[in-house]
């Protein structure tokens, strides 16, 4: 599904990613763990197509397509979804309007009919109920005045609606209390399927208690330092990142 080969990325001349290789197969859930400043968020933004990053080497294939040449919306249509660590507030755009515009843009490009308003409302109602997203929240401007938990739930709601093939979750657990974490995790787990892959980026192991990964990568200093099974996360929980930071520095 996703193949990252020798990816090097720089920001204003500073190299942040120094050769990432990663292959994600359909249905797999990968966790990328690492200390702050290891390049985790950079990787997620580069996958989603944010400007300001210079790709100095390497390539990324998404279902055989050259991902790096696509505009952010083309990536979304092709089935890539990034759940933002800090969802952007957009005053003046009602959440509902946004969801409908996004869903129909994606459907249109995927060769599906646009949904009528009643069909759309029904779909949103159904999906939002599961994520504990109130109708009142949907009437508010996009992410404006949402609490941390509300923002993250709204991200997962978007994910559920757009039905991506690959979900990238960037620190989705940050700023969540234990109850909110459960709601969000349940929402994510409900989307797991043999066709859908996920990359879960996190600093802490606790999210991985809820979203159990198939493969865990440790990222530090712009590289994947170690890859293992879910037990690797437990090991990190116990020992911290010190080994990897030191190893990379040495």
């Amino acid at each position: 599904m996703l193949e990252i080969k020798n990816l090097h990325v720089a920001v204003e001349g500073n190299e942040i990613l120094k050769g990432i290789d990663l292959t994600v197969k359909p249905g797999e859930v990968h966790a990328i763990m690492g200390p702050n400043g290891s390049g985790k968020s950079t990787l997620s933004y580069v996958l989603a197509g944010k400007d300001d990053y210079d790709i100095t080497a390497g390539e990324v294939l998404f279902n055989g397509q050259n991902l790096l040449e696509m505009a952010p919306n083309e990536r979304a249509v092709a089935g890539l979804f990034l759940a933002f660590q800090y969802p952007i507030e957009i005053p003046g755009v009602a959440t509902m309007t946004f969801l409908k515009t996004a869903l129909n843009a994606v459907r249109k490009e995927r060769g599906k009919d646009e949904l009528s308003t009643p069909e759309f409302m029904k779909l949103v109602k159904e999906k939002s109920a599961k994520l504990n997203v109130s109708q009142e929240m949907l009437r508010r401007p996009l992410n404006v005045g949402f609490s941390g938990g509300e923002k993250k739930r709204a991200e997962i709601l978007q994910m559920a609606l757009l039905e991506p093939a690959l979900c990238v979750l960037d620190e989705t657990d940050s700023g969540l209390d234990i109850d909110a974490l459960r709601v969000v995790s349940d929402g994510v787990n409900a989307l797991r399927s043999p066709e859908r892959s996920m990359i879960v980026i996190t600093h802490y192991q606790r999210l991985l208690d809820h979203i159990v990964p198939d493969i865990v990568h440790v990222m530090a200093r712009g590289r994947i330092q170690k890859t293992g099974g879910k037990e690797l996360a437990k090991e990190l929980e116990a020992k911290g990142y010190a080994d990897y930071v030191g190893e990379a520095a040495a």
């Binding site: 944010k50 505009a71 952010p72 919306n73 979304a76 946004f98 996004a102 843009a105 490009e109």
Partner: peptide, 12 residues
């Protein structure tokens, strides 16, 4: 804001 909207599939 542009990036966020586009990352949800909305054309530029």
């Amino acid at each position: 804001m542009m990036f966020y909207l586009m990352s949800r599939g909305i054309p530029a």
